[in-house]
Every structure is written in C-alpha cells, then in structure tokens.
Design a protein around this nucleic acid. Structure first.
Lengths: 248, 248
DNA sequence: AGGATGTTGTTAACACCGTTTACTTTCGGC
DNA sequence: GCCGAAAGTAAACGGTGTTAACAACATCCT
C-alpha cells in the first residue's frame, strides 16, 4: 500500500534518512567506547553497518563533520542528563539542585570517559569559536543548565558576588550578557558562573584524564571537597546538612 | 684522523646518534606546533629530515614510542621552565615562589598550547599508570617542582591543612608518601598538593583548551583570582602586597 | 504506464599513514 | 685491509580519508 496518506512518501524518505544519520552516529559512538577515539573511522563505521565508506559521504561531508555531529549529539545527551538530575530535586532548593547537577556531571564523565574526552580534550578548536558570538549551540545547550541554576540561585539571594571586579573584565562580561538571549543576568552572576565552571571542569577533567591516578585510587572525597568549596563560594554553604562553617 | 684519543671514536658514534635522536624530536615538535598533532607523523618527520620513514625505526621502536619520547622531553622542558621561574625569587619566600611558578605554568601553556595539549589532554592512558607506583618519571619531574615548594611552604608553617580528613582517604595518601623517596611529607601537605594541583590544572586547561573562549577574551583576571584563591587556601594570603583579607 | 529526476549505494583509484622485510651502503675497530 | 655492526633504502602489506565514474532504485510528473 504505497502512498497511503496525503503527505506523500517524501516524509518516509526523510524519516529513513534520519534513521541512517542516527545509526551512523550510534555506530561511531560504539566504536569510540569500545576501541577508542582512533577507531571511529569512516571505513570502520561503514564496515560495521554493512556498507562501504564512500556511502557515508551521502550523510556527512567527511570524517571531520561526522565527528562534529557526534560531538554535538553527546553535548545534547550530557545536557539531558544534567537536566534530569536537576528535575529530581525541588525547584525551591536551587543550591541542592546545583550540587546534584555537578555530581551528575562527574558521574556522567566517569561513566563515559571516552565521550568526555571527545567533548573536552580538544586542545584548540582552530578558531571556530568567536569570542563573543552566541549560538555556540553544541556546547552551550549544556552550559545553559549550569548558568540557569546559578541565575536562579542569584535571584533568591544565595549568590555572593565578588567585591572587586577588574574593570577591564566588565567589558567582556557585558558582551556575554548580550548574547544570553534571555533574562538580563547581572555581571557578577556571569562571573561566578565562569569561575565555577572553570573550577568544576578542572575537578572533573583532572580525574577523568587520569592526572590523579598517581596519587589517589578513589578521588571522590577530593571532588566532594571541591564541590563544598564551590557551593561555599556561591554563599550556599549553609544549605548543607552540617551547620554553617566558621571563619577559621 | 680516526681514533684520535683513548676513548675511541665510538664516542663520536654515540654523539652523532644522540644528535639524530634529538633532531627527530625537534622535527616532530616543529610539525606539532606548525600543523597540529595529526601532522607529527613518521613519514613527515623523515621527509623533513631528508630520509625515509623506516630509517626512524633505528632510533625509535615506532610511532608510539616517538610520541612518548617527545612527551617526556616536553615534560622536562616544562619542569625546567618552572624551576627557572622558582629560582628567580628568593628561597625564603616560598609563597611568592609558588605563585610565580603557577604563573609560569600558565604562561608556558599559553605559549605552547599544542605541547600542553599533548601532555595533558590524554583522556585515558590505558592503564600505564599504576595507582601507587612511583617513578612516573615523565610527569613527575614536573610535579615535583610544585610539591617541593608546597613542602617548603609547609615547613615554614605557611600551609593550613584541612581539619577533617576523610578516613578512607588517609590510606591512599599513606601509599603516596611511601613512594615519594625523599623526606617524610605529612599527609596534609600531600592533600593540599593534590587539591591545589587539581585546581591549577583546571584553571590552566580550561583556558588553553578554549573552554572559556565563549565568554572571555582575556581570561587573565580570572586566573589571577584563582591564583589568589589557591594561595589563600594555602594560608599564604597575607604574603600579598594587599593587607590580610577579612573573613567576610 | 513510462520516462525524467534525484537519492543511495557501489567499485576503482589516489595519496597518505604505520610497519615489516630484504637489501645496500657506510663506517668504526681490529 | 678486512669484518661486522650500524644506518639507510626500496618494496610491499594493510589501513586511512577522499574523489570520480557508474549502477540501482524510488519518487514524481505527464
């Protein structure tokens, strides 16, 4: 029964193509996980799918584009995992939500080290990131989860912005605020976002990349300590089960 | 005039071989810097040197070994740069020395992003690092500079170790202390070393890998803020030109 | 129904890569 | 002056990304 409905079979065509695109990415990811980044190759993917390599050029412009599509997909998956972790806790406790999202980031990275490496171990992306340009879609869908929580935290007065902001810095942050395309976020919040993101990235990356293996067999306590520090820097130290920490 | 001296010309032979080894690494590094990591290839190196690829097997067991030798060499160069930065300041100000060493690490990483990427962007070294084993020669010669300064800082009472150490953590740190092969370093110092190294690595890596490009055109103020935090966490906040910071 | 059209896949080929094998050349040591 | 080890070469194998020419097929229009 061809041409059953009015939409024509062009929709089916499109759907079958989407499925092929997805299967290519799925196969590439499986190779990445099972045999490492150097194994995710056009010919290997095609081989696994029972095809030949040039056929993949009907779907991706080349190896580079395929990897980029895989990267983008993984950013989305990570963002979804973080969002899910956020939704597991009440909205009126943004501090707790943020802490759990940070833990989920670490959990995801440790559960998918190869994927994390693909996303975050790129020494230089060769000027594909303009300094102020928005619509950094791939990595931004993921960063927005963290920024959103910090904004919420700030709105409730939980964020303690730093006192002395470098003047030359303010101009840069202004620029970022323009491209946020949402509510007006104060510069101080953007500052704490960037600072905390840098710290969180370091804490996770240093562990996933194995730079702690020489010293620690179980780096979780160190991460928890770092997480406490981050939350304390956000003025959210009192939200922990323990009592507010003294100054000394 | 062969065999001029008693040592024979086998010394010359050895020296010429050493020079070849060095030139291979030099060429590989040049390719790394000028054309990226994927360009440092056996055939390309040989081509640049006016040879053929199999000749390199007389010097390195293969591509993997060559990259590892290059990595090791770069670790040494980084360690030398840090040591030099340390020696530029008086030995009785370990806090200042440590701060300048951290700045030098960032400077070196920004000046040599490709090299830094080769050293520190390896998602997983595939179990070539046993958790407690010492003699991690390549990366340790470099880490030892930081650890040494922290030990010195501690010896002068500048380090404020954390109060509550996780019990399960102590066992791990004990193990590290065994393999330090020097003076007996207290666990607390090893803790602050690991914690500060994690933070320093994060601050530098997040910048070099371009994960801040979307927000900042000049991340230096952020790094300086991070550096102040690190020094403060070490109890060295008072050593800054500014007066001791209040609690609030 | 039937041809025009465009999508999807194939094979063949090119250039590059790491690596191995067999062979030649060169040079130091006796 | 000869011998043996070291250094370098060419040829080859299988792997890679990529392109070009070509076959098969579904879709669409008349």
């Amino acid at each position: 029964m061809p041409s059953t409905s009015g939409t024509g079979s062009t929709g089916r065509r499109h759907r079958v193509r989407e499925e092929a695109l997805a299967e290519i990415l799925r196969t590439g990811r499986r190779l990445l996980v099972e045999e490492g980044p150097s194994a995710v190759t056009l010919r290997a993917i095609a081989r696994e799918m029972g095809m030949t390599a040039p056929a993949l050029y009907r779907y991706y412009a080349g190896h580079r584009d395929l990897i980029q599509a895989l990267t983008s997909h993984l950013y989305d998956e990570l963002a979804a995992a973080l969002t899910e972790a956020r939704e597991r806790h009440p909205a009126d406790e943004p501090g707790r939500r943020l802490r759990e999202v940070c833990r989920e980031l670490r959990r995801w990275a440790l559960a998918h080290p190869r994927e994390f490496g693909l996303l975050f171990a790129k020494p230089v992306t060769d000027a594909d990131t303009a300094p102020g340009s928005a619509a950094h879609d791939p990595s931004w869908r993921f960063g927005a989860v963290l920024l959103g929580l910090m904004v919420e935290l700030w709105r409730r007065g939980g964020v303690r912005p730093p006192t002395g902001l470098d003047p030359s810095w303010i101009a840069q942050l202004e620029e970022v605020r323009e491209h946020l395309a949402g509510e007006p976020v104060p510069l101080e919040v953007i500052y704490v976002f960037v600072a905390c993101w840098a710290r969180l990235y370091g804490a996770v990356a240093v562990e996933v990349f194995g730079h702690l293996d020489f010293a620690l067999t179980d780096p979780e306590p160190l991460f928890e300590q770092t997480l406490r520090d981050i939350m304390a820097a956000l003025g959210e130290g009192a939200a922990l089960p323990s009592e507010p920490r003294s100054c000394a």
